[in-house]
């Protein structure tokens, strides 16, 4: 009396030809090869994209429960909280408007001066407002997923900022969502300079929420509370975005050990901005 449902023809054929041990060996080999190709060489984006095409509807459906919880918690935020936030935002808006007015004048002046000096025009910025959907479910990395993707012009490599500074970098895009690696991710590198004196270096994520400014000789002039901003030397990030503030400087050996804290609130903000640096087109004077 075997298999009253008549399922036995459905048993895969290789099942009878390979022993369980052999199948385990084969699968292990396949998995390890995938891991090496992916982690060491980053060569599997094609495979990933192909599988995501099938998975995307399921993934989107799986986001609904989270969306419900998040939206629900916002809906039930108390009126007092909303009023307080509203007041705070109005104040900030007023300050910003004032600053924007001055900035417009300065920008015009800057363009004019650059034109006079025959210098290339500064880059332009394109901004895409995004909303944080959730933390990426992978516990081994610090990434968030935002609600704009390749369809909205988001590309891997772009900088992601909040009002306080750099949050991270877009590392993977899908048509409707993209994945942002936070600057605190271990060994995530960003070229920076000290805002006070222009000393340049590279800041690395430490994986514990802090960052480290590396490869600076002990002579370098860096102090506690110095603000590090993007240097723009990578050609990707716009220069001048605040990244981190120095927490401690330790002159141990040849190099300084400088630990910094990110200036942005990043992971806890709901609304962020993806910024793209667009190289100036045409001659210096064209845009005026």
């Amino acid at each position: 009396m075997n298999s009253p449902l008549g399922d036995s023809p459905n048993v895969p054929r290789f099942h009878r030809t390979m022993s369980p041990g052999q199948r385990l060996g084969l699968a292990t080999l396949a998995a390890v090869s995938l891991l090496v190709l992916d982690l060491r060489f980053g060569a599997l984006d094609v495979v990933r994209d192909a599988i995501s095409v099938v998975l995307r509807p399921v993934q989107e459906a799986a986001h609904w429960p989270v969306k419900l919880v998040v939206d629900g918690s916002i809906y039930f935020a108390t009126l007092a909280e909303v009023q307080a936030e509203n007041a705070r935002l109005r104040r900030i808006e007023m300050e910003d408007r004032l600053r924007a007015a001055t900035l417009a004048a300065l920008e015009a002046e800057n363009t004019e001066l650059r034109r006079l000096l025959g210098m290339a025009r500064r880059f332009e910025l394109r901004r895409i407002g995004v909303e944080v959907l959730y933390d990426a479910p992978d516990p081994f990395s610090r990434r968030i997923v935002v609600d704009r993707g390749a369809n909205a012009g988001v590309r891997p490599g772009l900088a992601v900022v909040d009002a306080e500074g750099l949050v991270g970098q877009v590392t993977r895009t899908q048509p409707l969502v993209s994945e942002v690696t936070l600057i605190t991710q271990r060994d995530h590198a960003i070229p920076v300079m000290v805002q006070r004196n222009g000393v340049r270096g590279v800041v690395y994520g430490l994986g514990d929420g802090y960052l480290e400014l590396r490869h600076l000789l002990v002579e370098a002039d860096v102090r506690t509370d110095d603000v590090l901003v993007t240097s723009g030397l990578d050609g990707v990030f716009p220069p001048g975005i605040p990244v981190a503030q120095v927490v401690s400087v330790d002159a141990g050996g040849v190099f300084l050990r400088i630990v910094c804290r990110p200036t942005s609130f990043g992971e806890r903000r709901r609304h962020l901005l993806v910024v793209e640096r667009i190289p100036p087109k045409g001659e210096p004077g064209e845009g005026s």
Partner: peptide
């Protein structure tokens, strides 16, 4: 793939 973990 679905979770954005390392493939494999």
């Amino acid at each position: 793939v679905g979770r954005g973990a390392a493939l494999g």
